[in-house]
């Protein structure tokens, strides 16, 4: 098997950052805030790299769709082992109303142009929490979709057995390539993902190599994808704060208070 893999890498506010709503209530503050690769996308990249290490894949193309700074995210993907990268530049304004439908149109177009066999994406981005891009991309390509994958097992006959996480447990589905997969948390443990500093110390060569790898640049227009907004953001608000609770001294006080509140 010698697959050509496309992996999606979204640049998002780092998962550990406490976000703040902008004063104009049209979005959250992103200026001067730490950004990283979406954690689910790191898992997608890791899976692609492992497939290449097992000689199942011949080439991995990393793609990021967003403002200029998305190229930082692509450098990370290249340092993790992707072969080349494509940045589809979307200006800040269009990025605010960019929806998975538009992202998936770009991904589908690139997958066709690049003769991709397998698209691996994260199951959701931790900023918009949509959980839709993989499904939409699969539909546009008329390929099957293996979402929430926790195990991907390519077979000799060109089929792929995927273990999927579903409500209530797991399910096993067999697919024929080409295929779109979305990665769940338990698919793998990404190298470098949690300790980026160690990456620099232990793998300086990878980073140097990553700097030399090509990042191709395109615009949605080049790919004939229309970014006219599909939604209007009316407001973005912080959720209602919970009132401060009380600490109880012991188990008896806890149970008494729960009974008074009618919860037990």
């Amino acid at each position: 098997m010698s697959l050509r893999i496309l992996v999606g890498c979204k640049r998002v506010i780092d998962y550990a950052v406490k976000i703040h709503v902008r004063p104009d209530n049209k979005g959250v503050v992103t200026q001067g805030v730490k950004h990283s690769m979406n954690p689910f996308d790191e898992i997608a990249v890791e899976e692609a790299v492992r497939m290449k290490e097992k000689k199942l894949a011949s080439e991995i193309l990393a793609i990021s769709i967003g403002p200029q700074a998305s190229q930082d995210t692509l450098r990370t993907a290249l340092a993790m082992g992707c072969d080349k990268a494509l940045h589809v530049n979307v200006d800040e304004k269009s990025f605010e109303t960019l929806v998975p439908l538009q992202v998936s149109k770009i991904l589908a177009k690139v997958a066709q142009q690049e003769k991709i066999d397998l698209v691996i994406l994260g199951k959701q981005a931790i900023d918009d929490d949509c959980n839709a891009t993989a499904q939409m991309t699969a539909a546009l390509l008329n390929w099957p979709q293996a979402t929430n994958a926790s195990k991907i097992e390519p077979k000799d006959d060109g089929k792929v057995l995927v273990t999927r996480e579903i409500d209530g447990g797991l399910e096993y589905v067999e697919y024929k390539l080409p295929l779109v997969v979305s990665a769940d948390l338990r698919l793998n443990e990404p190298r470098y993902a949690t300790l980026p500093n160690i990456m620099v110390k232990k793998h300086p060569l990878n980073l140097l190599k990553a700097k030399k790898k090509p990042i191709d640049k395109k615009t949605p227009k080049d790919l004939d994808v229309d970014l006219t907004p599909r939604m209007e953001i009316i407001t973005v608000q912080e959720p209602a704060k919970r009132e401060a609770g009380t600490k109880v001294a012991d188990v008896d006080e806890l149970l008494t208070k729960l009974k008074e509140a009618g919860r037990i």
Binding site: I19, D129, P229, I234, Q237
Partner: peptide, 14 residues
């Protein structure tokens, strides 16, 4: 909700 429930977005679908 967006950002792990740390903000709520009101949106009009077009």
């Amino acid at each position: 909700t967006i950002y792990a429930g740390n903000a709520t977005m009101e949106l009009k679908s077009l």
